[in-house]
Amino acid sequence: MRILRRVGLVLLGLFVLLNIVLAFHAARFTYFYDNPDKMPSRKPESYSTGEKLEAAFFGMKLKKSVVNDAPKMPYETVRLTNELGQRLEGWYVRADNPKGTVILCHGHASNKSKVLCENDFFHQLGYNTLLFDFRAHGNSQGNICTIGYRETNDLKAAYDFVSRGNEKNIILWGVSMGAATILKAIPEHDLKPSQVILECPFASLYDAVQGRLRSLHIPAHPASELLLLWGGMERSMSGYSYRPSDYAKKLTMPVLLNWGAKDPRVLRPETDAIFANLGTSRKQLVIYENSGHQPYCTNENTKWQAAISDFLQASPRPAPQQPTAQALP
Rank of each mutant, 00 (worst) to 15 (best):
P329T: 11
L80Y: 03
R243P: 00
V255W: 11
L14R: 00
N153V: 05
K43Q: 14
K63M: 10
E225A: 10
L88I: 04
D69H: 04
F15S: 12
C105W: 03
G90D: 06
G178T: 00
L22A: 01
A223Q: 11
G126S: 03
S245Q: 13
E83K: 14
M253F: 04
R150E: 06
K156A: 13
T101C: 12
M233G: 04
P71M: 01
F311W: 13
T30P: 01
T271Y: 02
K112G: 08
D160L: 09
M237T: 12
D37W: 08
L131P: 03
F32A: 15
V196A: 09
T181D: 06
Y296S: 05
E270W: 01
G50Y: 08
K184Q: 13
F57Y: 06
S48L: 09
S46C: 02
A185M: 07
L53H: 11
E300F: 01
T146Y: 01
F121A: 05
L88K: 02
N128R: 06
G107R: 04
F24I: 14
E118H: 02
S241M: 13
H217L: 15
E188M: 12
V102Q: 04
E45D: 13
L62V: 10
L251P: 00
G165E: 15
Q321H: 09
P36Q: 11
V93G: 00
L228E: 06
L216H: 07
G292C: 05
G107S: 12
K64T: 02
L278S: 08
R282M: 12
R265A: 13
Q313S: 15
E167W: 05
A273H: 10
V16K: 02
W91I: 01
L62Y: 09
N153G: 13
P244Q: 02
W173E: 05
L18N: 03
E89S: 10
L12A: 15
A319G: 08
L155N: 03
L125S: 01
Y149R: 01
L328P: 00
L278D: 03
P269N: 02
G50I: 05
T146A: 01
F15N: 13
E199M: 04
I170H: 02
C105I: 10
A55C: 05
K63E: 10
A203W: 00
T302M: 14
G138F: 00
I197H: 02
N68H: 06
L183P: 01
S315P: 00
E89M: 11
R268I: 12
G239H: 03
G142P: 08
G211R: 08
L172M: 04
L285M: 12
H137N: 13
